[in-house]
Nucleic acid binder design. Structure first.
Lengths: 119, 119
DNA sequence: ACGCGTTATATCTTTCAAAATATAACGCGA
DNA sequence: TCGCGTTATATTTTGAAAGATATAACGCGT
């Protein structure tokens, strides 16, 4: 039994993980979910609505990611069938997959650190 | 060479790590530094001043930590020689040491993840 | 030509956390 | 007894981020 963090294990390690570029944040858990929902819905506005996020905020995030990546993560079309839409590019799909994996390793790290509090 | 995160390695993994209790945050990088400076200066107010933090904010953090820990991390005295002061308890010193170690492992994790972006 | 739903963008408003300010209490030493 | 620097606490102010609102542009289908 550990002295500092004992009694019903109420403490746990937690954290946030992201990838940052020279100036701005590039990818985090919120941007990841946004990309996932854009892929699922084919629309920035629908993805934003699903997340309870304003369209402006979602668009700003997409703009930030597209500006920083060598190739855009999201392709957009204004106007056209159904008014337009957005799709994940190949680079976007790759970014999603890589950050999902990074996030999974981070979850394991946090679980290990929480266990260590009581070892 | 990696396709997504290439060219002069401008991207890096970064993050924040903390220990949280049932209700509130318990220990993070800011609280750690505050504890370290309290230990060094023997005073909440001096520690706060060194960090460019208001005394109130520092006191709130100390209060939060002391309330959540089984034993207080910081002992305080109002009044007395030099007006009073604050010291790190044994539990406080232990918490500092443990979180420093956790933070070091996290730094290694982040370095590994940054390297992986370009592997 | 017009309507529709979307992207694209600017501006205004709100909210909320951080900071600033103020005041009391404490207890030793001069 | 008074001053000092500290802890302890409440209240007010500020500022930045988030959200809301407004408007334009786009291009396909009817």
């Amino acid at each position: 039994m550990h002295e500092l963090f004992a009694e019903n294990q109420p403490f746990r390690a937690n954290g946030r993980l992201w990838v940052e570029g020279p100036a701005d944040r590039f990818l985090g858990i919120g941007r990841l979910e946004l990309l996932e929902r854009i892929a699922a819905t084919g629309s920035i506005s629908r993805a934003a609505k699903e997340m309870g996020m304003s369209y402006k905020k979602a668009w700003d995030l997409v703009s930030s990611m597209n500006a920083q990546a060598r190739q855009p993560l999201v392709g957009t079309q204004a106007g056209g069938a159904h008014g337009g839409g957005a799709v994940l590019t190949e680079a976007g799909a790759q970014a999603v997959a890589e950050f999902q994996a990074m996030q999974a390793r981070f979850a394991q790290f946090l679980a290990d650190e929480t266990a260590r509090l009581y070892q």
